[in-house]
Amino acid sequence: MPKTHHVRVRLNGVDHEADVDPRVLLVHFIRETAGLTGTHIGCDTSNCGACTVLLDGRPIKSCTLLAVQADGSDLTTVEGLMHDGQLHPIQEGFHQEHGLQCGFCTPGMMMSALALLGKNPNPTEQDIRWAISGNLCRCTGYQNIVKAIQYAGRKMQQGASA
């Protein structure tokens, strides 16, 4: 058996640590070791984006990163979006604009949206479509996801100026 490695991450503001086999994928660490099942697995080839989480603020595909590589990093998953019992504007946008159907792609999609709006608070439709081009959705046809992200962008700007 290979040597295990101690991994410590800050996950949604909470420290998690465990000794892991180096081949454990980050997505399995998040789902099974940390027990946060909002991050999903939809493919084997880093195409679908259902496993998207933020690693030190950047969206990455957690099925294509080893848990040992994330040692010492700051991770945000869908479970980290809500604050003080309040929905994040992105969550609100997805609800208001019917940006989800089966809900399976939604957590990863929202993580990509969060990263986009962090960099570009007022994205164009094309900016949004390219920013979520690494996230597949089989239900919505993306149109309402675009609207949801626009909704969130507006709401976050209002929040920032208020």
Binding site: G35, T37, L81, H95, H98
Partner: peptide, 21 residues
Amino acid sequence: VKRKEDRRFIQGKGNYVDDVH
């Protein structure tokens, strides 16, 4: 009507088969 099921999905609290432990 806005969807009632959204609330759990947007929080990552859906319960899909692979989430059953």
